[in-house]
């Protein structure tokens, strides 16, 4: 374990606290295993190595922000966690469950992991309420009334209960993304993954979505967020990761990450990002 840790990580007390021993073979949810544990993860797209021997542990309740240039593998990384992408090398444990291609395993993992996409991916043929209630009925086995009730509860939490009867196409981008968050959170997952949740939004709608995510973070949700919103990272993140060429180049708590990045590549990236924002 220890010798596989990058030297700068081993020195960092915050990082030290996040790394735990390997989980049991048959863990129970909430047994103390980390939310996500990734060891030596490797993935190819044809001849292109998208993820290159990557190690990452996300502790329960941790808020992780992942940034990096386009094509660095950050989206691919979080998409492997709920098996939307496969991988060739290494292993992933979610709540201690070792991810394989076994349907039962993948379903168990997906029930524990919620995901929010860049393009919202609301179901356009369903109303906002049905978007949230249908998965509750089909996956959680809730009765129709119960599912609607819970869906309304979470729509209220993202502050759009009054839009419940509308179709996605009648909502603004920010509203759609908040519905997508409500839909994922209503499944009451242990971990939430966000894949560039504000990148497809008009600038004036970014804040309402980030506010919703901040609220979720305050409530203690474990979150892995791919984003270039450095303000959000500063405010919420326990740890910021910078990726390039399928590897984690640097990771640190936001204070350290933004004030004194160690790597030249990180500095160059931050300069470009912060100029824009």
């Amino acid at each position: 374990m220890a010798e596989r840790m990058p030297a700068d990580m081993a020195k960092d007390p915050v990082m030290m606290g996040l790394i735990r021993g390997p989980a049991n073979a048959t863990p129970q949810p909430g047994s103390g295993a980390p939310a996500v544990e990734i060891r030596g993860l490797g993935k190819w797209f044809g001849a292109f190595k998208a993820l290159d021997g990557l190690d990452l542990t996300i502790a329960r309740g941790e808020k992780l922000v992942i940034c990096g240039p386009s094509g660095s593998g950050k989206s691919t990384l979080i998409r492997t966690i709920n098996a939307l992408e496969g991988f060739e090398e290494g292993e992933i444990r979610v709540d201690g469950i070792r991810l394989t291609r076994e349907p039962k395993i993948v379903e168990a993992v997906r029930q524990r992991v919620g995901m929010v996409f860049q393009q919202f991916n609301l179901f356009p043929h369903l109303t906002v309420l049905e978007n949230c209630a249908l998965p509750l009925r089909l996956v959680r086995g809730l009765a129709a009334g119960e599912a609607r009730e819970r869906a309304m509860h979470y729509l209220s939490k993202v502050r759009i209960p009054e839009q419940a009867g509308k179709f996605a196409s009648q909502l603004s981008g920010g509203q759609q993304q908040r519905v997508a968050i409500a839909r994922a959170v209503a499944m009451e997952p242990d971990i939430m993954l966000f894949d560039e949740p504000t990148s497809a939004l008009d600038p004036e709608m970014v804040k309402e979505v980030l506010d919703t995510m901040v609220q979720l973070a305050v409530e203690g949700m474990t979150m892995a967020v791919v984003t270039h919103e450095m303000g959000f990272a500063r405010q919420v993140a326990d740890r910021v990761i910078f990726m390039d060429h399928g590897k984690i180049i640097e990771q640190a708590p936001p204070e350290t990450f933004f004030s004194s990045p160690r790597e030249e590549r990180t500095r160059a990236f931050l300069q470009q990002i912060l100029q824009l924002h």
Partner: peptide
């Protein structure tokens, strides 16, 4: 779009439910 499959599967819907619903 592929995103509809992804959203549905990520929510935990089974392949048959994804197709039918």
């Amino acid at each position: 779009p592929k995103g509809q499959w992804e959203a549905s599967r990520a929510l935990g819907l089974k392949p048959a439910s994804t197709m039918l619903r």
